[in-house]
Write a protein that binds this DNA or RNA. Structure first.
Length: 1058
RNA sequence: GGGCCCGUAGCUCAGCCUGGUGGAGCGCCCGGCUGAUAACCGGGAGGUCGGGGGUUCGAAUCCCCCCGGGCCCA
């Protein structure tokens, strides 16, 4: 079949192109075809989608980027012959969604959920909300061309998924990793739930008291340990004081009292307290303080202190004490501090927490009972300390304080009973498995391993509703605890399958205790939402209910997410993989960056710098967005910019024009790529054809290497520079004249075969990155010309490089030729010679044999691009001989040295410039006698300028020297005019909207010189303009006529369709 | 305070791993082209390669320190 020129008939509009492709895909079920083809491959490629969080209807542009990266990799692997697993996922549980529902229902506190709506309704609201969001998100992902299995996503709230989650809890239990513990954790007093380390992600600048408290040393009247705190509400739970063993401490007398604190803090503390007179009595090491006992200043007001007073002493703890903050003595409330807790446990000291789940002080706080911790309790406690004279100094401080990531309520650290998985026991295994993973870029691995160093046990329980219910039942009678791993196990223990595995339905399932026969009830907690996505690698495949799929696909061959997920999902996956299967669930990881605003800040709706996805794709075509994203180094952040997008859009115009060019001429000449193959024209290939074939095969090689190595940006950049630089800006310009020939010459066929091959190959390579544009061009350019071509560009096989067509030497030679072309064009420009006007000769002297060979080999290419009749290759001596030295006198220097002789010296320089310059260059000076005086001219007296004759415009480059002979004969002048006339006729043809193949008749009259020039080049003019006849007179009838001004010569041209 | 990343032309970014006279696009100025044309091509101006120190014959590139920004943590 033959190329049919559809493209040049169309008005280019990238939006319309994409709309057309969208409905084409729909109409032809292209995704299904692509998937079916991929399924026939035997090499598996298990891609695991990091599930986006379904908490909003509009995706963040960064989420779009994320999916585009995934789509590119998936499309590439399908075309490269992999059986690709492409199930997308949605993360659907968790506090953020609960909070949104609470807000929409106007609920203030947790108990409102029970009392105002009921848990059942609440869960239904959550589910409906998520369903709507998923639908909207899916539509948007499809909108930017993401080919994934949208009809079968994995959704974390389904019963199957929940059951799969239970399996891992059971597995942890079997491995003796599951335990219940009393631990200090961040707690949100509004959401009434504990938060994991990684959920403590938001901080606010808040004002708190900053107080120095005097703790009386037991048995030493008037002597105090000085501590500093910004959390007075923790003082009722004070249990001990920590000191650094190696730090220097001092006893200091201020007035009648003695204080103990670190020497390093002394000056600072005294200055802050405004104390000028103090005397250091003694200096000693912190370790000497060990065991020193003290009394609590509020002991009588706080019930809990009756028990705690026996622990009030100094304990050594280097890790808890900083010489840069406080007093070097740290007040410790193990129930409200992480390090405090650890040290208490290590020393066998009890952990007391005096704040309840809504942030109020408990019974044990005695007088402070019922007061809200950060506000009321702080105030009351500071007042009491002040009235008792227990404050050394008080002020306030504004510092970063953690707040709830969802509701922004300031958090409280409190000890509670929670369920944990002892991942610290798995540290070595985790490190070992992380080492086995391939990380792109490699620094992601460093970061990951660093994170593993800070490993803590995993708190999996949350006191909430919308999540996977914790599958733990406890016997009411004997406290026996059973972990349920599946619904079947539930039934085996006397339970049943509720209609939904969420709360509240699951809460009603009671089991029979296997130990005592009593009634077992479920622990009311749900699982940390990070648990959900962490099990995706097997849960999304239906494991453990069905095993075959997981067993045939694992491990995941590829995952990719933003760099925030190194600590997030990449970690939680690995953690679950090691807990469940003792190995990493993924093999290769790619990290992508963040989408920032134009100033490099994060994009947030609240900052007003947010670009809505819908707005984005309504203003910018999808492929333009995709290409822009792809050109950015994947793992680096990208700054959003409308302007950058506009620039990329311009590249698309050039790409379009390139295909229009090919389509136009191939269509005109009925080029048949199935008949005129590269093989069939191989004896007619010109040097530029062989060059392009080499280039395109090198592109295939570089592109595939980049994609295999997950360097998408390198692949995208290679594609861009090939189509823009090699094809559009070089090859096409070069072959235009060959293509314009009317006759069906072997040379033209060779150019078509070459260009067709290059463009078709490029389409296949670019298809994963810009799927819309490539599909459109394929359907309108390739498919009509090849009956047996697949029905979509996405069904093509990824091209394989034909190594034998790669000609390194030719490519290098072309590089050299291009450098000379550039230089010659520059030389033309500086001589003021328009490119339209041919020059007689271009003279090139190459610097070495290699360059010289390149020029000789490619002299035709150079001549064509520079519009020169001939290219002469000469030796360097050619230019040496033509060199003219001109001396410019440096009047200041000459005048100072030779005063009155100056005018004569200047005259001499003019007369004998060449000779003087020669000697100056050779010897460094020139001596002469002038009027009886010895004149010695040195370089400082003159400036030596190298010049060439006027008719030669010279340019020097690394490879050598190029010169344009600017002398023009009468004939060349005439040819120049003929070209000017041709250009104007073409312009008029265009104005008349003539087709390229239409013949015309031309009349030309006016300036004699120009008319004569046209006569001289009549054949050329007729051929270029497709004129059947030229008349050198005014036409008798009325034809389309214009008057032109060519370099101040006036001429009229008339045209009529013949 | 810690780990990792980034800092190169007015702007956006390549180059750095594997040291050898600094690149592209945009913008600006000048010129050209007009049978791919709401395009395109050429030329020019424009750089303390964040700062300092070290290694080296030679550092944007390797090492150390510092400054600024980002991410993740404390």
């Amino acid at each position: 079949m033959k190329v049919v020129d559809y493209l040049s008939k169309l008005e280019y509009n990238q939006f319309k192109v994409e709309e057309w492709v969208k409905s084409f895909w729909e109409r032809e079920s292209v995704y299904k075809l692509v998937k079916a083809k991929s399924a026939t491959s035997t090499r598996k490629f298990y891609f695991l989608d990091g599930p986006p969080y379904a908490s909003a209807k509009s995706i963040h542009p960064g989420t779009a980027w994320n999916k585009v990266v995934k789509d590119i990799v998936l499309r590439y692997h399908r075309m490269a012959g992999y059986n690709v697993w492409d199930k997308p996922g949605y993360d659907t549980h968790g506090l953020p969604i609960e909070v949104k529902i609470e807000q929409s229902l106007g609920l203030q506190v947790k108990k409102d959920i029970y009392e105002k709506v009921g848990v059942e309704k609440f869960i239904e609201y959550c589910k409906a909300f998520v369903d709507e969001n998923m639908e909207a998100m899916t539509r948007q992902f499809k909108e930017i061309g993401v080919f994934m299995d949208w009809e079968n996503p994995y959704v974390t709230y389904t019963n199957d998924y929940i059951e799969a989650g239970w399996w891992l809890v059971k597995r942890a239990h079997e491995r003796r990793l599951l335990y219940r513990g009393y631990k200090v954790l961040h707690w949100c007093p509004r959401c009434e739930t504990t938060l994991a380390d990684y959920e403590v992600s938001e901080y606010r600048e808040l004002e708190d008291p900053s107080i120095y408290v005097k703790l009386p040393v037991r048995g030493r009247s008037g002597e105090y340990l000085l501590i500093w705190t910004t959390t007075p509400w923790t003082l009722p739970a004070n249990t001990f004081v920590m000191a650094h063993p190696d730090l220097d401490y001092v006893r200091v007398r201020v007035g009648g009292e003695v204080y103990i604190l670190a020497e390093a803090r002394l000056e600072h503390v005294m200055r802050e307290a405004g104390v000028k007179d103090y005397v250091v009595l003694e200096r000693f090491k912190g370790r000497d303080l060990e065991g020193l006992e003290y009394d609590h200043p509020l002991e009588d007001l706080v019930d809990a202190q009756r028990e705690l007073r026996r622990y009030h002493r100094v304990i050594l703890a280097a890790e808890a004490v900083s010489p840069h903050e406080g007093t070097g003595l740290v007040h410790s409330a193990p129930g409200h501090g992480t390090i405090d807790y650890e040290i208490a446990v290590r020393n066998g000291i009890p952990v007391v927490s005096l704040v309840d789940e809504v942030g109020r002080m408990t019974e044990g706080a005695g007088r402070y009972k019922g007061l809200y911790f950060r506000t009321e309790a702080n105030k009351a406690i500071v007042e009491d300390l002040r009235s008792r004279g227990a404050l050394f100094h008080e002020s306030t401080v504004v510092h970063r304080y953690p707040v709830c990531w969802r509701c922004k309520t300031p958090l409280v650290l409190r000890a509670t009973n929670q369920w944990f998985i002892a991942v610290t026991k798995l540290k070595d295994e985790l490190v070992r498995e992380a080492e086995r993973v391939e990380w792109r870029p490699t620094w992601a691995k460093t970061r990951f391993l660093n994170i593993l160093q800070e490993l803590r046990d995993w708190v999996i329980s949350r006191q909430r509703f919308w999540g996977i219910p914790l599958p733990i039942w406890v016997c009411r009678s004997c406290s026996y605890t059973h972990v349920v791993g599946s619904v079947r196990e539930l039934e085996e223990l006397g339970g049943y399958r509720p209609r939904d595995l969420h709360r509240p339905w699951i809460d009603e399932v009671k089991l029979k205790c296997p130990k005592c026969g009593g009634v077992m009830e479920r622990v009311p907690d749900v699982l940390d939402v990070w648990f959900d996505s962490g099990v995706a690698f097997y849960a999304s495949l239906g494991y453990p209910m069905r095993r075959d799929l997981y067993e045939s696909l694992e491990p995941a061959d590829f995952i990719v997410e933003g760099h925030d997920q190194i600590r997030g999902w990449f970690f939680s996956l690995l953690r679950s993989g090691v807990i469940g299967f003792n190995k990493t669930p993924y093999r290769r990881v790619l990290v992508h960056g963040f989408m920032l605003d134009e100033l490099g800040r994060e994009m947030h709706k609240s900052l007003g710098n947010y670009v809505d996805f819908e707005e984005l794709i309504s203003r910018v075509p999808r492929d333009v967005v995709r290409f822009w994203l792809s050109l950015n180094t994947t793992w680096e952040d990208i700054r959003f910019s409308w302007k950058a997008l506009e620039q990329v859009q311009r590249d698309f115009t050039v790409i379009w024009n390139t295909f229009v060019f090919a389509s136009t001429y191939m269509g005109l000449d009925s080029f048949d790529p199935e008949v005129v193959t590269i093989e069939s024209v191989k004896d007619s290939l010109e040097v530029e054809d062989r060059w392009l074939l080499s280039r395109v095969n090198k592109l295939v090689k570089a592109y595939r290497e980049a994609m295999e190595d997950l360097r998408i940006h390198d692949a995208a950049r290679a594609l861009r520079s090939f189509i823009l630089d090699d094809v559009s800006r070089f090859y096409i310009r070069l072959v235009r004249r060959r293509v314009w020939e009317e006759a069906d010459t072997p040379g033209k066929r060779a150019a078509y075969a070459t260009l067709y091959k290059a463009l078709k190959t490029w389409l296949a390579l670019a298809a994963p990155i810009i799927p819309f544009t490539t599909e459109y061009l394929y359907q309108h350019f390739v498919k009509p010309a090849e009956a047996n071509a697949p029905s979509s560009v996405h069904l093509l096989d990824m091209p394989v490089a034909e190594e034998q067509l790669i000609d390194e030497e030719l490519e290098q030679d072309m590089e050299i030729a291009r450098a000379f072309i550039e230089a010659a064009l520059s030389a033309r420009a500086s001589a003021g010679l328009k490119l339209r006007r041919p020059v007689r000769r271009v003279i090139i002297a190459a610097v070495d044999e290699k360059a010289s060979k390149a020029v000789r080999r490619l002299s035709d290419v150079i001549a064509e691009m520079v519009n020169a009749k001939t290219v002469e290759v000469v030796g360097m001596d050619f230019f040496e001989e033509l060199k003219v030295y001109r001396l410019e006198p440096n009047m200041g220097e000459i005048g100072r040295d030779y005063k009155r002789l100056t005018p004569e010296i200047v005259k001499l320089l003019e007369a004998r410039g060449g000779e003087i310059a020669g000697e100056l260059l050779a010897k460094g000076y020139y001596e002469v006698e002038l009027g009886g005086v010895r004149v010695r001219l040195e370089p400082r007296h003159v400036e030596v300028k190298v010049e060439y004759p006027e008719w030669l415009s010279v340019k020097k480059i690394d490879y050598g020297v190029v010169a344009v002979d600017t002398r023009i004969t009468v004939e060349e002048e005439a040819e120049g005019y003929a070209r000017e006339v041709v250009r104007r006729v073409q312009h008029m043809r265009k104005e008349m909207k003539l087709n390229i193949e239409d013949k015309i008749e031309v009349w030309i009259w006016g300036d004699v010189e120009i008319v004569e020039a046209v006569k001289l080049f009549e054949g050329y003019v007729r051929n270029e303009t497709r004129a059947v006849k030229l008349n050198y007179e005014k036409p008798e009838e009325k034809v389309y006529t214009r008057e032109w001004d060519i370099e101040d010569k006036v001429v009229s041209i008339g045209i009529r369709r013949a």
